[in-house]
Write a protein that binds this DNA or RNA. Structure first.
Length: 369
RNA sequence: GCGCAAUUGGUGAAGGGGUUAACACGGCGGAUUGUGGUUCCGUUAUGCAAGGGUUCGAAUCCCUUAUUGCGCC
């Protein structure tokens, strides 16, 4: 079956909902950790369940190159391949074309670009992206889009946005996995009328959910929040809304306030590997000398495995020595931090005090040390 | 005891009279938003074994001392 979204409650524009999938039912708004190469870097599925993580995000482009969608198919699909019994969303590869192809040639048909592994010439089309995702057998597939750089001229953004809509239709036409839902992606750059146009045209194609893409590509916060506002009012209330690639603690609050249901971001795991941890008082860098003899947990009242068992001084030691356990322990903490934040956000919506929760969270987060 | 050579930061070192002592590693700090796990950026010797001298100018030349290495009695 496809996913089903049920809107439970509104608090102004913020939404409380339930997302029913073949791998369980989950509350929204939610945060989804990124597992590009069929794993959330350094973590096991059991560890993800323990921190109440639900959906994870894997990547079409990366799995297409290695190991190849046929291998995953032979394994019995992505869930069996990676031993994950929660819902999986696959990104389409559109963002990778934007982020890691130095030379790319975008045409109506698709994108020609070079493999980041061996430089081999690749050609990815909307149809191919969907076909690969069908084989990967994720629960949610994403349309193949072009992520517009920032800044971009109006003419470029308009042409690209219109093409992304044609690509969305082409992908939908070949989509053939009845156990997989398909989301459309709103683009439009920073332009209000293009965001509106993109949202309306994408909705006409009748997807199972809608994403807001093309954010967090170098624009300032105000511009990013505007990008959400411009588009989200044209999205149907009975379908999930997913803000792609956004995951700073404050951005989650800003997104929820505007009506976003789902977020994903590499930040908690990437920051972890570089020694950074989220705390209620802002981000800290465990590499800092001041933690050398700090034998307290990252956060005293955090319920994660890391905080219940390890000290800052020990994690600093691991990170300093480039030991993988350091990145693992910090990944556990950082993901749990965002998931816990979402739990509290949902609770605050339920209790009609989201505004107050948001204000208090931001006040504390920015008042670091 | 005599002769020869060496001594530059936390480390490996470049520079053999011209001004701010190269580069690398390490250290310290920052960045990171649909992940190219090894990335990027900033900073880090007011000082060249110590002292004295020559010179407009010395890590670079000279002298003394110390330490280290090699060779010879």
């Amino acid at each position: 079956m496809k996913i089903k979204y049920e809107l439970i409650k509104n608090y102004k524009k913020a939404r409380l909902g339930k997302l029913k999938t073949n791998y369980g039912t989950f509350d929204t708004p939610m945060f989804m950790p990124v597992g590009t190469l069929a794993n959330v870097k350094t973590l096991t599925p059991e560890e993800l369940y323990d921190m109440h993580s639900a959906v994870i995000l894997a990547n079409t482009y990366h799995l297409w190159l290695r190991p190849g969608e046929d291998i995953v198919d032979k394994a019995g699909g992505l869930h069996k391949f990676m031993n994950y019994n929660g819902p999986i969303l696959t990104d389409s590869g559109g963002f990778q074309v934007f982020s890691l192809a130095k030379k790319k040639d975008i045409s109506e048909e698709g994108v020609v670009f070079k493999s980041h592994i061996d430089g081999k010439k690749l050609f990815l089309t909307p149809e191919l992206s969907i076909q690969i995702q069908n084989k990967l057998d994720s629960d949610i597939a994403m349309s193949f889009d072009e992520c517009i750089p920032y800044p971009a001229s109006y003419e470029y953004a308009k042409a690209s946005t219109e093409r992304t809509i044609r690509w969305a239709k082409r992908g939908k036409d070949v989509h053939s996995n009845n156990n997989q839902s398909l989301f459309g992606i709103v683009q439009g750059g920073e332009y209000q009328d293009l965001r509106e146009y993109s949202a309306k045209e994408t909705v006409k194609l009748n997807f199972d959910g809608y994403s807001i893409g093309g954010t967090s590509v170098g624009e300032d916060k105000v511009t990013m929040y505007n990008m959400i506002d411009y588009a989200i009012k044209y999205l149907p209330i009975d379908k999930p809304r997913y803000l792609m690639g956004v995951g700073e603690p404050i951005d989650l609050l800003e997104g929820v306030e505007r009506g976003v249901d789902m977020f994903d971001c590499v930040l908690p795991t990437r920051l972890a590997r570089h020694g950074n941890a989220f705390t209620r008082n802002g981000r800290i860098n465990l590499k800092n000398l001041k933690y050398k003899e700090d034998f307290t947990p990252i956060e005293d009242n955090c319920d994660c495995y890391t905080c219940k068992n390890y000290t800052k001084a020990y994690i600093r030691h691991l990170i300093t020595c480039d030991e993988m356990l350091g990145g693992r322990l910090l990944s556990i903490h950082n993901i749990r931090f965002l998931i816990k934040e979402m739990e509290e956000i949902r609770e605050s919506i339920k209790n009609d005090n989201f505004d107050k929760y948001k204000e208090e969270f931001i006040r504390q987060y920015k008042n670091s040390d």
